[in-house]
């Protein structure tokens, strides 16, 4: 921290008009190639405000108010939990709705979130700065099984659930869009799933052939 402060002071004094010597000195102090002081990895936990914590806290509040049941992180964010980061725009939250009728009505979720100050934008709700999409399984046995087997985790000190890696991959494969397969390919390159478990899930839901065509060949 001390070295960073010195580098920042040095650049601050120069008022933006940095000379190459000043940049080199700042760079030496800071340990970076460029002159601008940057945050070090070990300072991350102290300096970075939680990204998902407040969002997950509000979603847990909906669960406490019995508007939703077992909110579980799925989609690309679930893949990212186990594998390398991939670009995505939203946080997919799979959940059940208590006492639901034949048709799924997401209205109560959206109404309550609006009351709590969240902005609604088409399918997405901006919950504390993060775009969230709520997904309720409707006659989707794979998603229901993934929800039933979801793992409890703590993210930014907030307890929640997340799809197990193999289920997250299978749900992505079932969605079958080009970007889903791209995310799957990126994920399996960086973190190997449990092959036996994955094959069992994929074959149970008739996805194994497609998987082999797209990923293994």
């Amino acid at each position: 921290m001390k070295r960073l402060t010195r580098a920042a002071k040095l650049l601050g004094k120069l008022g933006g008009e940095t000379t190459s010597a000043a940049r080199a000195e700042a760079s030496r102090l800071n340990g970076t190639k460029g002159g601008r002081p940057r945050m070090r990895a070990e300072e991350l936990s102290q300096e970075i405000p939680p990204i998902l914590g407040p969002t997950l806290e509000l979603i847990n509040q909906l669960e406490r108010e019995e508007i939703i049941q077992k909110p579980t992180i799925g989609g690309s964010i679930a893949l990212m939990y186990y594998a390398q980061p991939v670009k995505t725009d939203d946080l997919d939250v799979f959940c059940y709705i208590p006492n639901r009728e034949l048709l799924i009505d997401l209205g109560p979720i959206y109404r309550r979130l609006e009351e709590l100050g969240c902005k609604i934008n088409n399918l997405y709700v901006n919950v504390k700065g993060v775009d969230v999409q709520f997904l309720v399984p409707a006659n989707e046995p794979l998603v229901e099984e993934a929800l039933a087997n979801a793992a409890p985790v703590s993210i930014d000190n907030v307890t929640t659930h997340i799809f197990e890696y193999e289920y997250a991959l299978a749900v992505k494969a079932e969605a079958n869009r080009a970007k889903d397969w791209a995310h799957i390919a990126t994920a399996v390159e960086s973190a190997a799933p449990n092959k036996e478990k994955l094959d069992a899930i994929l074959s149970k839901y008739g996805l194994l052939e497609k998987w082999r065509r797209k990923i293994e060949e």
Partner: peptide, 21 residues
């Protein structure tokens, strides 16, 4: 490198995601 990035703490990965966005 991919394996190393996958093994990073989730909070670090989230930060990488926001930077990508």
């Amino acid at each position: 490198v991919r394996r190393m990035r996958a093994a990073e703490p989730f909070e670090r990965k989230l930060l990488a995601l926001v930077r990508m966005q």
